[in-house]
Design a protein around this nucleic acid. Structure first.
Length: 562
DNA sequence: GTAGGGTTAG
């Protein structure tokens, strides 16, 4: 059973869970009090309880149960190992996974190829592709199944390594394995940007060749792939062609329109879905909320807030995260804040969303404060978190206020990290600028996550503003440092940008009037009345430029000015 | 035993 299938507000499962854990503890306590205890359960019953908890993500209960089961002398088997593995994935707990892996080897279940397959996908889900590949290579060639290959292909997809997933796919064909529905679905879901459309079409045609294009899972994935790659029309053609649309088909299409900014069509399909007798679920609602944020549609967003509430979906942390994001993107930071603080279980995404929301709404000090609070917790910030913080820093003038980014510490297992932004006294020495830049650079380079073009961009932007470094395009900057032979991380920007195919899309602004969404870009001359609008805008721009200039001067410390 | 629609940035 997937967790999504559990009915909201259902108290049955926690209740049973509690009872099982109690029972297991009872047996254990009888034993330590000197009773000779024979477990009333066989290994299958213990496994059933353990797997049940694992699927629900009750890590502590799983471990306690496992501990007690071993104490009363029940021999763990491969089902136990699968359950433990599942618990580790649920918590994304890499070191636990490694322990389970070695335990599995210890009791000999690694001879079973299906256990190895599970480990492959588990390591990939815990972001350790190297270990995944190690397990894959450890399987004797004759024993590898199509599932082994699929797990590896899917693993590369999680890790955003879509070149690698294509390579594994090629290898797999070369080794005489035929792709199946899962291979196609895994591959397709890695194509998420316009640049991947060509490969997406190619895999689509392979799918047709092997006759998988009639499978509704494949079609659903295709709909999602085409919309993410910017070809929403192809997605729609596929969608219209499905005879028996599932919830997933509807949601894929709705999400496509919502992300594209066509909220009207998304909403139309949302109601059409209900009319067709297919009930929107958690993911459908998430897509709509996210779409409202993208389009800045506050009123509709509120409507979906109520909708989620009445459907009992607001117990879900992802729905709350999406709502926080929506409210902050719509400028309603108060609503976002209220939701955030009321959230009982805040995950990293919740914190990141709130930090980014604060940065977006000009609450920079609060953003930094939240980051500090996050560091005190046992949660691990990711690249998006750091990006949000850096963006807040870009605006705060934190250097002038005596703030400096500092220090990341890992523990020896690399599980958690602590970092902070601590106050630092300013010195008026000429080397000041360089030192601060170096510090910021060290910060980015020592981040426990992979820095990408976005993070480097944010850093350079911060440098530009706060260190008053000459405005230079990223590439020129990178060249300068490359010439100096220093900080090769920065010198890599160009390659990184190339590899990531970073492109700059023009920013769009939009607003809602009379239930319609209007969008425009900078220097947009398409509107019929633009001839009238621009003189007014020019006038406003002149005023604001004067304002900005005088406020910008205030940002430069006295000893640096002039 | 693998996979499909979804939340955080730009």
């Amino acid at each position: 059973m997937k967790q999504n299938d559990i009915e909201p507000n259902n108290l049955t499962f926690p209740f049973i869970a509690k009872a099982c854990a109690k029972l297991s503890d009872l047996i254990y306590s009888q034993m330590i009090h000197g009773h000779v205890v024979k477990s009333p359960f066989d290994v299958a019953s213990w496994n059933a309880m353990l797997v049940g908890f694992a699927q629900m993500g009750f890590l502590e209960k799983v471990l306690r149960l496992f501990y007690n089961m071993r104490l009363v002398g029940i021999q763990a088997d491969f089902v136990t190992v699968m359950g433990l593995t599942q618990a580790a994935i649920h918590a994304k707990h890499l070191s636990l996974l490694k322990s389970v892996h070695s335990f599995g080897i210890h009791i000999g279940v690694d001879a079973d190829v299906s256990v190895c397959n599970t480990w492959i996908s588990s390591y990939a889900k815990c972001d350790d592709l190297k270990m995944a590949e190690l397990v894959f290579c450890g399987i004797e060639e004759g024993l590898r199944t199509v599932v082994s290959w699929n797990s590896m292909v899917a693993g590369c997809t999680y890790g955003d390594k879509f070149d690698d997933s294509l390579n594994f796919y090629r290898h797999m064909m070369y080794d005489g394995f035929r792709l199946d529905v899962t291979t196609v679905v895994s591959l397709l879901s890695s194509f998420v940007c316009p640049e991947a459309l060509v490969q997406g079409r190619l895999v689509h045609s392979h799918g047709i060749h092997y006759g998988f294009d009639l499978d509704v899972s494949v079609i659903n994935t295709l709909i999602s792939m085409y919309s993410k790659c910017g070809d929403i029309d192809s997605a729609r053609v596929l969608f219209d062609g499905i005879c028996d649309r599932t919830r997933v088909s509807w949601t894929a299409m709705i999400s496509g329109y919502a992300q594209k900014g066509d909220l009207d069509e998304a909403l139309r399909l949302f109601f059409a879905m209900e009319a067709a007798g297919e009930l929107p679920d958690l993911v459908t609602v998430l897509s709509m909320i996210s779409g409202c944020g993208q389009s800045g549609a506050l009123e509709l967003g509120k409507w979906f807030d109520n909708y989620a509430c009445s459907g009992g979906l607001k117990d879900n942390v992802m729905v709350c995260n999406a709502l926080i994001d929506m409210y902050s993107k719509c400028g309603s930071i108060g609503d976002a804040r209220e939701l955030f603080y009321a959230l009982p279980e805040k995950i990293v995404v919740s914190w990141t969303t709130m930090i980014a929301g604060c940065a977006l709404n000009g609450e920079f000090v609060e953003a930094l404060d939240l980051f500090h609070q996050l560091m005190e917790l046992d949660l691990r910030p990711n690249r998006v978190t750091f990006l949000a913080v850096l963006q807040a820093c870009t605006h705060t003038g934190f250097l002038e206020k005596g703030w400096a980014i500092s220090i990341i510490q890992y523990d020896d297992k690399g599980i958690s990290c602590k970092s902070g932004i601590r106050p630092l006294l300013l010195h008026g020495r000429p080397s000041w600028k360089k030192r601060k830049l170096k510090e910021a650079l060290d910060f980015v380079q020592s981040m426990p996550i992979k820095s990408d073009a976005g993070i480097w961009g944010a850093l350079l932007c911060a440098c530009k503003i706060h260190l008053n470094i000459e405005i230079a395009p990223y590439v020129e900057m990178a060249n300068k440092y490359a010439l100096g032979g220093r900080w090769d991380g920065v010198a890599n920007i160009r390659t990184m940008m190339k590899r990531n195919q970073v492109k700059k899309f023009p920013g769009q602004s939009l607003f809602h009037i009379n239930g319609k969404t209007c969008t425009f870009t900078a220097e947009d001359r398409y509107h019929a009345e633009s001839e009238l609008t621009y003189p007014v805008l020019d006038c406003l721009a002149l005023h604001s430029r004067e304002e900005a200039y005088s406020s910008h001067l205030k940002w430069i410390p006295e000893h640096e000015a002039g």
